[in-house]
């Protein structure tokens, strides 16, 4: 008891606490306050109870955006994790190739997110873009501003190009950390490349891959800038993900419904963060079982 009270470390945490209070807790409280009121302007607001929550939970556009978001994040994981592992396996293990491939992989990660959207707009334009012209030249009509499927393919391509390097870098770090003795033992036993991957490399990458899944899920679930710049959520609403829809709502001055939506969004994120946090906590302990 006395030790707890004497602990001066609490004072050192105070600045962070004040910062978090101003930047996160107070705004969050305000959002909760907004979510139960109809606000017309400063001083002009009316308590409406749970009306916005009822409206948002029954809102078909929100349901659509939510399913779209889960589909998007699911596809992101399904493509980027195996692809990232494949790239990591194919990367050189020593020599000058290591530095070259590391720099090449890091490049997409260094570009600002809204610039990435702009790059892909130009890259996929059917009249002047390299990819757009090439695909249309093959006789396939491709226009991400007109066809929902083309928009999805473009957003997925952009996302995979942008973030698979992160998975590859993590997987590569995991692979490099495996002691050479494992591979020597496998060679002596005459293990096939698949057996080496399945029983040595994959289990040893478990930790970094869990982190990769976590990061990619959370980031793709919150994605805003790149698809907003590329498609603006269109054509129609076909690439309107949760955050894009949220911004559309709040810029239309529907602050009440937008606040209710934010709280639902926040609760989904909170649940998944907690689940992933638990998974991460168990990463180290799972190996020993």
């Amino acid at each position: 008891m006395g030790k707890w009270e004497d602990n001066k470390a609490w004072f050192l945490v105070l600045p962070v606490f004040v910062l978090v209070a101003i930047s996160a807790i107070i705004p969050l409280m305000t959002v909760v306050n907004y979510s139960v009121q109809d606000i017309f302007g400063p001083g002009e607001r009316y308590f409406v109870g749970i009306e916005w929550f009822e409206e948002m939970l029954a809102n078909k556009r929100l349901h659509d955006a939510l399913w779209r978001q889960f589909l998007f994040s699911g596809l992101v994981l399904l493509i980027e994790i195996p692809l990232g592992v494949l790239i990591a396996l194919a990367m050189p293990k020593r020599g000058w190739g290591v530095s070259v491939s590391l720099v090449l992989l890091a490049l997409p990660l260094l570009i600002p997110w809204n610039v990435i959207g702009t790059i892909w707009i130009i890259f996929t334009r059917p009249d002047i873009g390299l990819l757009g012209v090439a695909i249309n030249g093959l006789g396939v009509e491709f226009d991400h501003t007109a066809a929902p499927l083309d928009a999805w393919i473009t957003v997925m391509l952009m996302e995979v190009w942008h973030w698979t390097p992160l998975v590859a870098l993590l997987a590569y770090a995991g692979l490099r950390a495996i002691p050479e003795a494992y591979f020597q033992a496998a060679r002596i036993d005459g293990a096939s490349p698949w057996a080496v991957f399945r029983y040595i490399q994959l289990p040893k990458m478990r930790g970094v891959l869990t982190i990769a899944v976590l990061l990619r899920f959370m980031d793709s679930f919150l994605i805003y800038a790149e698809p907003f710049v590329l498609t603006g959520g269109g054509p129609g609403n076909s690439t309107t993900f949760l955050s894009i829809y949220l911004v559309k709502l709040s810029t239309a001055m529907d602050v009440g419904p937008a606040a209710a939506f934010s709280i639902i969004y926040f609760l989904i994120i909170l649940l998944f963060s907690w689940l992933f946090y638990q998974a991460l906590q168990n990463v180290g302990t799972g190996d020993r079982q």
Binding site: I26, M29, T30, V32, N33, Y34, V36, Q37, I39, P42, G43, R45, F47, G49
Partner: peptide, 15 residues
């Protein structure tokens, strides 16, 4: 604190 748009139910909730 007008911008925070406090109401009695939300104040009770946070309290």
């Amino acid at each position: 604190l007008e911008w925070m748009a406090w109401t009695l139910p939300t104040a009770i909730f946070f309290a």
